[in-house]
């Protein structure tokens, strides 16, 4: 009984279902991969922008300074994970960069590494989603969506921390 079964079973399911349909799934696959590769131009610039800022934040020692301040207030969260909680709602690329950094410095299977993975999976980037979707239909009064979204983020992060303690400590 393990998580190793999820991917093979999912792919098997999709392929078996496809056999019942008359679709050129080879062509679909090729097209999907091609479109996926095209994303590089979209994501590299914003990731680089964020990596640059985070690298400076880290190398200057400022990040450690802020995390230390917060660690005293929130001792149950490993100090490496604190910046992730801070940035989760604001910037997806920033949290990704921090996540990779935690994998490299603390270890991917360390307590901090697992907690950070669960936090990353628990919510989406609220500020990004809200600004993108509402600006698309030119809505200025976003009602209380931002606060509700942030509240959901907070609940997600708290759950992630509690679950890590329950299953991985």
């Amino acid at each position: 009984m393990s998580s190793q079964l999820i991917l093979p079973l999912l792919i098997l399911g999709i392929f078996i279902y496809s056999l019942t349909k008359k679709v050129d799934i080879y062509a679909s696959f090729i097209r999907g991969v091609k479109d996926g590769l095209g994303l590089f131009i979209d994501i590299y610039p914003s990731l680089l922008a964020m990596s640059f800022a985070i690298a400076l934040l880290k190398e200057s020692g400022l990040l450690i300074f802020i995390s230390d301040l917060l660690t005293h207030g929130l001792p149950m969260i490993p100090s490496e994970v604190i910046p992730m909680c801070l940035f989760r709602s604001f910037s997806g690329s920033t949290t990704l960069v921090i996540l990779v950094d935690i994998f490299q410095t603390s270890g991917v299977d360390s307590f901090a590494g697992i907690m950070a993975s669960i936090i990353e999976g628990s919510t989406d980037t609220t500020f990004y989603v809200i600004s993108l979707y509402f600006s698309y239909v030119k809505i200025k009064d976003i009602s209380n969506s931002l606060w509700i979204g942030l509240f959901a983020d907070l609940i997600g992060i708290i759950c992630a921390i509690l679950l890590t303690y329950t299953f991985f400590s």
Binding site: D109, I114, I119, G121, S122, T123, F151, A160
Partner: peptide, 22 residues
């Protein structure tokens, strides 16, 4: 990682809690 997908179960619970709360 020795178990790249080990966190998935917890992440699903956390994301579901967040959605329900929201």
């Amino acid at each position: 990682s020795v178990d790249p997908m080990g966190f998935v179960g917890c992440a699903i619970i956390a994301t579901t809690c967040a959605s329900v709360a929201g």
